[in-house]
Design a protein around this nucleic acid. Structure first.
Lengths: 248, 248
DNA sequence: CGCCCATTTGACAGCTTTCAAATCGCGTGG
DNA sequence: CCACGCGATTTGAAAGCTGTCAAATGGGCG
């Protein structure tokens, strides 16, 4: 049975950022990698690790987080199929944060050296990866603003909007809702809130008819309303125009 | 009269991240640029701008910020001599945030095309710039954690530590203190606090003998104490070992 | 000397956290 | 098939950190 390369979603994503020649595409898809499956909550990288690989997500969800002195945890980013997680850790040698699986995930681990080589040999790929890093940075900036200056309800709504749009852009969203693979505690760790307050704000959004909830899933009931409630503008994701069409 | 190239501080910084050949250095220093002087509060880039240049700071301080729905502002990064600000805006075309001068600043504006060309033609430079972007991202992550999960006093102390160390690394710090070129309102915008509360927390740090204040300046009175108060660990700055020696 | 902006300080309000307890969902075992 | 058990979700009440509002003080500059 044929299995599609786990690197294809990454290729698709890099092509957002730069136009690649056929030879570039081939070089990307022949990158060496080791497939790895991680169970929920499984650690992929620990802060302080000397890292040697970057990872490409084939399926599942992954998050990165930091731990502060009082033991509290802050999730700094969420990742999904096609994301090139952890170029940071791979190129900077020492990990400055944790990388952990949210759900069961399949990862392609690509050696640091191979990444550096392909980026150096093929400028278009180097540029695409650099762009990817820049977009990562843009999302970080939005999160700083989200956590720093928005109230709890807005923060959560913003997170839900971002996740929906990114899922759609990656081609793994459903019509008007999606499985939110996070517990309320994890949502709190993304937004700098306590799980209790996340629960209340989720209820508030739900009561106002902006979302529907069932079990672990969240469905967006009123996309326009949620965009406003979340003070959400998609520019910072730097998605190609056609990808944000769904937002209109 | 001879004037040193405004690009020299950038060169020095890029050399933290990758070893450059003589030809690389020369190519960097012959990058085309336009010198520009900006007064305090002067806008360098506006959100939504179609940007065409990145800027290298020769002197002064610059910050980047975002504005959320209720009008509040969040500063997402601070920059100083040698920093390559705004590769993001330059390579991603549409600015997703503002760039503004904190103090009178001299900037070298380098055209986007020149940056792309040098990064593509000279892999070592491309890699160094990419690293620089990655370190930027690492600082963003720390800020997310700072704003999201630390209390007000710790946040401020953390910011003061970071600024001190980065100044020292850039070679523009003094012995045991520095001019903090920010108003308390701007400190609040960095930390997600109100100016009033910044004032109180500064007083608290001062009362505890961790810092001394006079006018706009802050002197660090007890470096060890401030590190602890700020839950500060320098790893995320990814500075070369000798640069963090002062922290010991 | 006088104006203006930044800093300080106090009192009070309010959003979010904390602490606790009840309920729910779901996999496991009887 | 139903009971049990554990983690996640909900809800309530009260405390606390930070924000808001207002006014006084201070410092720099014309």
């Amino acid at each position: 049975m044929l299995t599609a390369s786990p690197l294809i979603p990454m290729l698709r994503k890099l092509e957002y950022w730069a136009t690649l020649a056929e030879a570039d595409r081939e070089a990307l898809l022949t990158l060496p990698y080791i497939l790895k499956t991680i169970e929920p909550k499984g650690m992929i990288v620990r802060e302080g690790d000397q890292t040697t690989h970057a990872c490409v997500i084939r399926s599942g969800f992954v998050y990165r987080h930091k731990v502060v002195a009082n033991g509290a945890r802050q999730i700094v980013s969420l990742h999904m199929s096609g994301d090139l997680v952890d170029l940071q850790n791979a190129l900077l040698h020492t990990a400055d944060h944790y990388v952990q699986a949210l759900t069961r995930s399949e990862l392609a681990m690509v050696p640091r050296a191979a990444i550096r080589r392909i980026a150096a040999d093929r400028p278009a790929i180097g540029e695409a990866m650099w762009h990817d890093t820049l977009v990562d940075g843009s999302i970080f900036r939005e999160w700083i603003a989200n956590v720093g200056r928005r109230d709890a309800r807005t923060r959560l709504a913003h997170l839900l909007c971002e996740f929906a749009l990114r899922l759609a852009a990656a081609g793994i969203g459903e019509e008007n809702g999606y499985e939110l693979p996070m517990t309320q505690e994890q949502l709190g760790d993304c937004t700098g809130l306590t799980p209790v307050h996340v629960n209340r704000m989720l209820k508030s959004l739900s009561d106002d008819g902006l979302i529907h909830r069932s079990k672990r899933a969240v469905a967006i009931a009123d996309w326009q309303g949620l965009l406003i409630a979340g003070d959400f503008q998609s520019g910072y994701l730097h998605l190609p125009d056609e990808k944000v069409a769904m937002m209109r």
